[in-house]
Structures are given as C-alpha cells and as structure tokens.
C-alpha cells in the first residue's frame, strides 16, 4: 500500500515540475472562465423576465450546469496531454526498470500512477468549482445540483485518466499516447451518434457513451447506473494497463 502512495506522490510532483501541467491548468481555467462569464451575462439579460415565470430555471441551471457540461469537453482535449507521459515517458527514458526491480507489483504501479494523475484532476475540479462557488457571494445556489455536477466531472476525468493511462502503457512515445487517448475518448463520447434510428442498437450505444451518463449528473440526477458505468470504465482500463505491463515483462 505504501508503494502506491510513494508512486502517486512522485507522479504528482513530476507533473507539477513540468510546465505542461501548469499550462493545462491555466488554459483550461481561462477558457472556462470565458464560458462562465458569457453564461452569466446571458443570465443577467434574462433575469428580469425569468423572475416573472413560475418554476423558472435558476442560476444553477442556466450558468453552472452549462459550464460544468462544457468543462468535460474542454478536458476531453486537455487530459490526454496530462496522461500521455504516465508510462510512455518512463519507457522512453528507460526508467521503468526502477519500478520493475523494486518490490512492487504491477497493480501497485498502475494504481500509484492513476492516483497521482487523479490528484492533478482533483486540483482541476477544485479550480473549476471555484467559479460557480463565487456566485455565492451575490446569491444562492442549488448546492445539491452543483455537487452532482462536480461528482460527474470527477468521474468523467477519472474515466479519461484511466483510458489515458492504458494508452500510455502501449507506447514509448507520449505524443502517440496522447493522440490515441484523444481518439478513443472522442469515439466513446460520440458513440451514440450512430444507430439513433434503430431501436436496440441506438439504445445500446447510448448506454456506452461517456456523454449520456455525464448529462444526467450535470442535471443533478445521481443514479447508480451512471456511477457504475464510470467505475466499470475506470476498472476496465486500469485492468488492461496492468495486463499490458505484465505482458511486456513476459514478452519483452
């Protein structure tokens, strides 16, 4: 267990020692801040009319939910850049023997790497959460919905990181890992675009889509099915990564 935290701490430290992590944090924050302000501006324009409606959508629905929803799309682009180095860089720099020679199992290596990068993802979620929370200064929010949205964002990032870790385990070139991660994530994101006209297939594909499950959480609906989907997704790709490292030791 100790080794997992050791690996995770090293991973997180190395991430923040590279300019990449800071750039990603800055760029993501900048784009989302712009989206946030645009949504807020929209809301201010229609606030007076909304007040007349009965059961009108509140600020959480109009400002916070779209921002959190869009955050996932922005991070779909950014997270492969964060996860690409996890194992590919170690393979390229030939530092993997350090982990293989240490009394540490492949599962611990993968878990450590994953927790390390998740530490970064949580920092990202925390920074994004600050924007909606700043609204508390001038009004009230539906904190339950906000929490559901942030939970969704964390789970989506968890899924991105797991897929990225697996892709990074396949290659010695971080850029190749980034491109394949992005391709995989985008495919799973839009997989329900096909088969919409056909009953059974469309339904099945919709269940596979990362987006569909995320939409529910952003709306504030927390269901076991969505949580289970993300957990299975994460475990599946982490399992593949462990298998991949084992196979590498066997096959050379």
């Amino acid at each position: 267990m100790g080794a997992i935290w050791t690996i995770a701490a090293r991973e997180l430290k190395s991430l923040f020692l590279s300019p990449l992590a800071w750039t990603v944090l800055g760029v993501v924050q900048l784009i989302l801040a712009y989206l946030f302000l645009a949504q807020l501006d929209n809301y201010m324009q229609f606030a007076a009319q909304l007040a007349l409606l009965e059961n009108a959508p509140g600020v959480t629905d109009i400002v916070v939910a779209p921002v959190i929803g869009d955050a996932a799309v922005v991070l779909l682009l950014a997270s492969p850049l964060v996860t690409m180095r996890l194992l590919a860089e170690e393979r390229r720099a030939r530092t993997l023997p350090l982990l293989y020679t240490a009394p540490v199992s492949m599962t611990e290596i993968v878990a450590g790497k994953y927790l390390g990068v998740m530490g970064f993802m949580l920092v990202l979620v925390g920074l994004i959460a600050l924007m909606p929370l700043s609204l508390l200064a001038g009004g009230s929010l539906d904190l339950g919905k906000l929490a559901a949205g942030l939970l969704g964002l964390t789970l989506v990032l968890g899924a991105f990181a797991a897929a990225g870790l697996f892709m990074s385990s396949l290659t010695a070139q971080p850029v190749v890992a980034a491109v394949s991660t992005f391709g995989l994530l985008l495919l799973v994101w839009i997989i329900d675009w096909a088969g919409a006209s056909r009953e059974g297939l469309g339904d099945a594909l919709a269940r596979l889509s990362l987006l569909r499950h995320y939409e529910n959480l952003v709306k504030g609906i927390v269901s076991t099915a969505d949580l289970a989907y993300y957990l299975l997704f994460i475990v599946f790709f982490l399992g593949l990564a462990v298998r991949r490292l084992d196979a590498e030791r066997m096959g050379g």
Binding site: S14, S18, A93, R94, T95, P97, L98, T101, A102, P103
Partner: peptide, 16 residues
C-alpha cells in the same frame, strides 16, 4: 526483489 539492487545499462533517473 527486495533483496536485489539493479543498475541497468542506462541508469533509471528522473532528470527533473
């Protein structure tokens, strides 16, 4: 593995 120390041909160092 706890009983082995290994220096591969290329030392596994983290430059950062």
């Amino acid at each position: 593995k706890a009983a082995v120390g290994y220096l591969p041909e290329q030392p596994p160092l983290y430059r950062e």
